[in-house]
Amino acid sequence: MSSTTLDPSRRGAHAGTGGAPAGGMSGTSTGPGPSFFRVLNSEFIKFRTLLSTLILLGCTVLVVVGFGALSAWGTGQFSEAAATDPQAAAAFAAQGGDLAVGVPTSGIAFAQLILGSLGVLLMSSEFTTGMARSTFAAVPKRIPAYAAKLLVVMVTAFVLTAASVYLAGLVSLPILDNYNLNLDLASSQSVKMLLVNSLYVAAVAAIGMALGSLIRNSAGGIMSLVGLFFVAPIAFQLIPGDFFVEARKYLPGNTVEPMTAVQHVPDTLEAWQAAMVLGAWVVIPVVLAAVLLKKRDV
């Protein structure tokens, strides 16, 4: 039965001293309860005190900046080839001529995977570790804790993505410059790309958190997320039939391009439609997860 590994020298201090262990207790309990701000503070403490979370955040920065630099190099090579090869020149022209503006956001696909998984993990680990019992004993109304966690996850995903994309842009500048390509990080298209992609990643993180809350299992949640963002677009393309061609436009992963397009591309959603579709992809699972979280046993 003996299994504590406390320093033996300390043991005497709390052995058999009836009153001493509870020292500092007093009278009846009055004091502040769980307001939203306090719960938010608690969720932020929980967020920043997990090493795995910090590692995933660091990975996101590395991946986005790394892919930005790689993409800058590749884009430069491509434009050089276009100068001598008429075929490449035609392809270059077909892209609208401005490839550099997409360079800083070229690592977004990986950022969404990492931060989406983080969203899943932050919620599913509450249930797999049993932490949820502590969390919801402290905040028995449950929804404030859920909303606070959602806010922490979304704000972090947005800020981190925006910062990483900007950093990727800064790193890309000298590389692009080498190939005489111009990138203005302050141009309206650059800013639009940065904001839309950051919002998109925040949305993916929110969807991930909702999945983590609904499925309560890390592997299952991450697989669902991967299925939705990586498998479904490919599967929808392979399955013959007009229905899947049409449905593919409404997948959450295909809403970013219409929102960042310089001008509307035929056979895609309008920017406002894409925004609505992405919004629905966030709101429906998030609300469903909240309702079930309130209803289910912990």
Binding site: G31, P34, V39, S42, I45, T49, A138
Partner: peptide, 9 residues
């Protein structure tokens, strides 16, 4: 600390 934060303990 995280538990305490919910009640400003």
């Amino acid at each position: 600390l995280a538990m305490a934060a919910t009640h400003s303990i």
